[in-house]
Amino acid sequence: MPKPISSSQLVEVIREYTGYVCQGGPASDRFRLPDPRDSRLSIRPSARKKQQDCVSIEESIQLAAGKADLAEELFSMLLEQMRFDHDRVEELWQDQDLDGLLDCVHKLHGATRYCGVPELRTAANRLETALKREAPDLGHHKEQLVSAMERLQIWSDQTDWQQLFREQSPQAETT
């Protein structure tokens, strides 16, 4: 999550990832976990957590200052680079080149910040963070990134995404 984090954002993330609903009252009461011996109050992963959208054309245009043609160009550049990055991520992982992998994922994550690709952006961010922290679950995060890249590639192959951008352009509305 980007910093600073508000208490309401923290409460929402806790609910989203654990299913635990923080109650009102003083902060010490709101964040107190239930007694683990009380099985009625056990924390369980939330079933409401859904996979993020693969692509948001609206977000892409918003990130491009409302310019659909620029958003389309940035999205096209991301797709082109992503084909190379997919193979590169796998190669760097096989070679156990974590510094090279961090560099590759950092660049990919930066590119996702300019396009409406929430799932890929989140996966890249999580792997980048895990690499920086030398987290024990790197393999899981790498697989999540590769899966997000593959879903985006499939979506782009099966969708006339250029037309979706053009339908959102101001010229499309006046013609």
Rank of each mutant, 00 (worst) to 15 (best):
K67P: 05
E73V: 06
F75N: 01
K49L: 10
L78I: 11
S76T: 14
S76H: 13
E59P: 08
S42W: 15
R48P: 05
R40C: 10
A68G: 05
S60N: 04
L74K: 04
L70I: 10
L74I: 04
G66F: 01
Q62A: 01
E73D: 15
Q51K: 15
L41A: 12
I61D: 05
L63I: 02
L74S: 08
Q51C: 12
A64M: 01
K50A: 14
D69I: 05
R48Q: 04
I61P: 03
L63A: 00
M77F: 14
A68M: 07
A71D: 02
L74W: 09
K49G: 03
L41Y: 11
I57Q: 07
Q62P: 02
S60W: 03
G66S: 01
K49V: 07
C54G: 00
R40S: 12
G66H: 03
F75Y: 08
D69W: 02
Q62G: 04
I61Q: 05
P45G: 03
L78C: 06
E59K: 07
E73M: 11
M77C: 05
K50S: 04
R44P: 12
Q52V: 07
R48W: 10
I57T: 00
M77H: 14
Q62M: 01
S56N: 04
A68F: 04
E58L: 06
E58F: 04
S39I: 12
S39T: 15
S42Y: 15
L78A: 14
A65V: 03
L78N: 08
F75T: 02
A71G: 11
Q52N: 05
A68K: 09
S76F: 14
Q52G: 08
Q62L: 13
V55D: 06
S60R: 03
G66M: 08
A71F: 12
F75S: 00
S39G: 06
L63E: 01
A71N: 08
E58Y: 11
L70S: 07
K49W: 12
S39R: 15
I57C: 01
L74C: 05
E59N: 01
S60E: 00
L41S: 09
K50F: 12
A64H: 01
L70E: 10
A47R: 13
E58I: 02
F75P: 00
S60C: 02
I61F: 07
K67S: 14
